[in-house]
Computed example of a mutant assay.
Amino acid sequence: MSARVIMHADVDAFFASVEQAVNPAYRNKPVLVGGSGDRSVVMAASYEARRFGVHSAMPMSQARRLCPHAVHLPANGKLYRRYSRHVMRVFLDYTPLVEPISIDEAYLDVTGTERLFGPPLEVARMIKQRISSELGITVSIGMGRNRLLAKLASDWDKPDGLRWIRDEQLPHVLDELPVKRLPGIGQVAAGKLRELGVRTVGQLRSLSSSLLEQQFGKSGAYLYSASRGEGNDGVSFYSQPPLRKQVSEETTLAEDSADLSALHTLLLEMADNLARRLRKQGMLGRTVMLKIRFPDFKTVSRSVTMLQPADTWQPIYHSAVELLDKLGLGGRSVRLIGIGVTNLSDQTADQLILFGDESVAQAGKLDTACDELILRYGDGVITQARRLR
């Protein structure tokens, strides 16, 4: 049986690189992609712009101060999606095991493809050459026996990098890497590790599993394994599920209630659940529907279309509360209450609009972080304070 070979392919400075590819006048110049409003953030910065200290998610006003001569362009979602589909088609020419992580990166399992395409390094070079010649952009590819190593390797020599972390190099090849390079290590965890005298992966590996679990709980087992280059090697088959028309959730109350505070809490819980489902499916919703059923089984529904499509609980919840308040219960009790989100679209289609606003971007990052905690530790590990009343 062939040894497992996982690739992580990440297009370099995707949005900015696409703009440079289709507009020769922008090549070799600093390019910033993002909105122009006061709260806009940088969605992508070319490597020419990064030399001036600019990076993604930085306030656009700060980026313009650091690099005032940069070409500033609005996002072109249709163009980026077209390029993304082309990139994924190239990947699929070499393996059906392609798992997109975002619009510009994916994991590939190329185990056992040697008879068709040659050694794994040759496959990686063919992919890089095709994307460069067909699209005029570059992709960095990392390789290893699992997803962790592949991800670390793809970040090693950016841009246009190619690195394979082989088994015989482990674990010492990771020794000098900063611990923050390990996926899932944020500022808080890195700060706690510094307090333990740990700044590199090699230093992390010197700590016992019992100490790490004592300090970091269940995450300690991940830190212990990651410092040794151990991780998940699974890659899913590529799929494009059909777009759903809506997501919805409703609940029948244990007892009929006219308590607005209690109804608001139920709406909050449902909005959170629906938002999580939307993110899991890679969808955004623009229209929020409220459903109310009274004790006499009379049912009414109301809907409102939001200014921006959303996959976070805040706009869904506030829209539902607005609809409930406008409905005006007038003291009437409620038997059933529900929320639906419709007018759905592909997340990659609209995330370009959403990340033009810093506040929306921050809310999205927070909800994504909560998703990861729930996935790791289960439902109930984190919730809104209001739901604890």
Rank of each mutant, 00 (worst) to 15 (best):
M1P: 11
S2A: 14
A3Y: 04
F15V: 02
E19Y: 05
E19W: 09
A21D: 06
A21Q: 05
V22N: 08
N23R: 14
A25T: 13
K29D: 02
G35Y: 01
G35T: 08
G37R: 13
A44M: 02
S46E: 02
R50E: 04
R51H: 12
F52I: 00
F52E: 00
V54Q: 02
M58H: 02
C67F: 08
Y80V: 01
R82L: 15
H86D: 11
T95F: 11
L97F: 15
S102H: 14
S102L: 10
D104G: 09
E114S: 08
L116K: 08
L116D: 03
F117Y: 15
V123A: 05
A124V: 04
A124E: 01
M126A: 14
M126C: 09
M126D: 14
K128I: 02
G136Q: 10
V139K: 10
S140L: 03
A150Q: 00
W156V: 00
W156I: 00
D157P: 01
G161E: 05
G161S: 10
D167R: 12
E168G: 08
V173H: 03
P183M: 09
V198K: 06
V198N: 01
V201Y: 06
V201S: 06
G202H: 10
R205C: 08
S209E: 15
S209M: 10
L211R: 15
K218S: 15
K218Y: 05
S219M: 13
G220K: 11
S225L: 13
S227W: 02
R228C: 05
S236E: 13
F237Y: 13
S239I: 00
P241R: 12
P241Q: 09
P242E: 13
P242L: 11
R244T: 07
Q246G: 14
V247Y: 08
T251N: 10
A254S: 14
S257M: 06
A258G: 13
A258H: 11
S261E: 10
T265P: 00
L266T: 12
L267Q: 02
R277N: 08
M283E: 04
M283W: 12
L284P: 00
R293D: 03
F294W: 02
K298C: 05
T299E: 05
Q308T: 09
W313M: 09
Q314P: 00
P315F: 09
I316K: 01
H318E: 15
A320N: 03
L323N: 01
G328V: 06
R332Q: 13
S333I: 01
V334H: 08
V334A: 06
I337E: 05
I337G: 08
G338T: 08
G340H: 06
G340S: 14
V341G: 02
L344T: 04
L344H: 10
Q347V: 07
T348Q: 14
A349Q: 15
I353M: 13
L354R: 14
L354H: 10
A361M: 09
Q362D: 12
G364R: 15
A369S: 14
L375Y: 07
Y377D: 12
G380L: 12
Q384S: 10
A385N: 03
A385I: 05
L388S: 07
